[in-house]
Amino acid sequence: MDIVDILLSASFWAAAVRIASPLIFATMGELICERAGILNLGIEGIMVIGAFAGWMTVYMGFGLWSGVCVAMASGMLFGLLHGTLTVPFGLSQHVVGLGITLLATSSAYYIYRLALPAVSSPPRIVPFKPFEIPVLSQIPIFGQAIFNQTPLTYLAFGVVVITAFVLYRTPLGLALRSAGDNPAAVEAQGLSVTALRMGAVIVGSGLMAVGGAFLTMSAFDSFFFEMVNGRGWICIALVVFGAWRPGKALLGALLFAAFDALQIRLQQTELGALVPYQVFLMIPYVLSILALILMSRRAEVPAALMIPYNRGER
């Protein structure tokens, strides 16, 4: 199969949108945190706990949407812990974030092993089914790619619209962005930087967890170890690539996912027979680093990112 054939097939673009969906949730989550001034390195672990909590809920007999809610709640819980340590107490966002990733990941694995001590192959659930949107899904290629996805994918696009609207069209969004750029100015207006940042970290972490849940409840149908596999770190790179803007970050996620879908398909071509498969698997990580280098010069980093805010300190 030729690259042109691949790029013109609807199934390729459908796969790209599917691969992008968990990244979109988690990238929006990280973007909200960073826009308020908090780097959330808990993202990788929070995606794991979301993937596990959502799947486990459905496995225990509850509905799929209950699973999404439980996943979100589990993420918010770890977000609350992250926020408490980094916002009012101003602890190192690097160390706390990595600690949260370790804690969330090992908690998920521990509970999984407790609940299912002796399973050799991971049990399955009935995941979200694709929901075809009439008429729109008949548009060649792009309609077929975008409008025949599971409800969680539609939700991911909805989250981008809501995030962009709230950040740029509401007083809350203005306050959030100021908390990440000039927290003293926010405090001067009588708003609480602590509350804004805490809220951003909690909501953002909830979204990351839904991104994780997408993996177990929509992309696949079971939970296995190492399934998040660095997607969280890639989302941090996507936030930088998207210059901290929801629309650009969405484009970045889609572009990235297209490359990922392409490398999977290229593995099956004559090229794939010549080149070791590990080279293809490296592409997403290499692309993320290249994206960081490319965008780092031009990016408008939130001015107070990673700087704890102490009231009364100038």
Partner: peptide, 15 residues
């Protein structure tokens, strides 16, 4: 280039 080393070192682990 001002590229954050957290993400690059993390991604290099996978590579």
């Amino acid at each position: 280039f001002g590229v954050d080393e957290v993400v690059t070192t993390l991604l290099l682990n996978f590579i």
